[in-house]
Nucleic acid binder design. Structure first.
Length: 281
DNA sequence: ACGAGAACCTGTTTGC
DNA sequence: TGCAAACAGGTTCTCG
């Protein structure tokens, strides 16, 4: 579920519930996530007032008036729910952390696969923290342009698909939007990253941004306040062009199976890539 | 130093 | 129908 657009949607959904509120009580029901929860998680959060909720790459940053930044990563299966009347709803399986607010509402972090994490990082040490130190620019970073992207790809012999998934090159793209962006840019996922220069790099960055913006807009428009009746955040209807569309006609050129068109699936670094070999070179 | 693959977990879907 | 294998949107470690 969570690539950049989903994390952005979750941040926007959490914000109105969290900002300005005091964290009243934190309950850790299970501590062994991707890294162990900080032992003093509850002690350091309880009593703190939230001043903001931001996204950095695929991380959620919960800013506090005083004290550390609460860093959350949703991994593969992480979800956040907001419950106005939490006492009426027993915690679900895999609800690992419960955050009760002064309003009486509760934020629940659920993560079946436990690839997600929660960490506390000093606000002035965020950039130097191992979680963030090596991250590349956000796709929406105004300082990032085609030339800058090309410079980050220069000399790389891995495929462009692998480079897009490398958070040190550009941060926030995951397996779905890598396929979608390459389709939008007309670039073969197997192309060597270092050959994406000039106009190709411009087009790729534009495609990345278009695909992410569209997904964020879909997340926002299909949910009232970004919260479902269940309280779950960040879910929206998918509008994929090629992802998970193996065997279907290419939506760009309408080519179909039989010649060398139609959407195909290929495995790169153990992950599925979907593309149209006729349209993407 | 780089890139490919495995590993970390659990749940769901697919295939025999 | 039942069971096993394959697969899932991320990150990090190891190995060549």
């Amino acid at each position: 579920m969570p690539e950049l657009p989903e994390v952005e949607t979750v941040c926007r959904g959490l914000s109105p519930h969290l900002v300005g509120q005091v964290i009243a009580r934190v309950t850790a029901r299970r501590r062994d996530l991707r890294r162990p929860l900080p032992r003093d998680l509850a002690k350091r959060l309880e009593g703190a007032r939230v001043t903001g909720v931001e996204r950095r790459a695929k991380y959620i940053l919960v800013r506090l008036e005083a004290g550390p930044v609460l860093v959350i990563h949703l991994g593969m299966s992480g979800r956040m729910t907001v419950l106005a009347r939490p006492d009426a709803v027993p915690p679900a399986a895999h609800d690992h952390v419960l955050i009760r607010l002064g309003t009486g509402a509760e934020i629940r972090f659920n993560d079946a696969r436990r690839f997600g994490l929660m960490a506390l990082v000093a606000a002035d040490a965020l950039d130097s923290d191992p979680l963030f130190r090596a991250l590349g620019p956000d796709p929406f970073d105004p300082a990032l342009d085609g030339a800058a992207l090309a410079a980050r790809l220069r000399g790389k012999s891995c495929t462009i698909k692998a480079a897009l998934l490398d958070q040190r090159v550009i941060a926030g793209i995951g397996n779905i939007y890598a396929s979608e962006a390459l389709f939008g840019a007309g670039l073969s996922p197997s192309r060597k990253a270092g050959t994406v220069t000039g106009a190709r790099a411009e087009k790729l960055l534009a495609a990345v941004r278009a695909v992410l913006e569209r997904a964020i807009a879909a997340g926002g428009s299909s949910l009232r306040d970004y919260v479902q009746a269940s309280g779950e955040l960040g879910y929206f209807q998918h509008q994929w062009a090629v992802y998970d569309k193996e065997g279907q006609p290419c939506p760009g050129c309408d080519c179909d199976w039989g010649r060398n068109g139609g959407v195909r699936r290929l495995v790169q670094q153990g992950r599925s890539t979907f593309y149209c070999p006729r349209r993407q070179r």
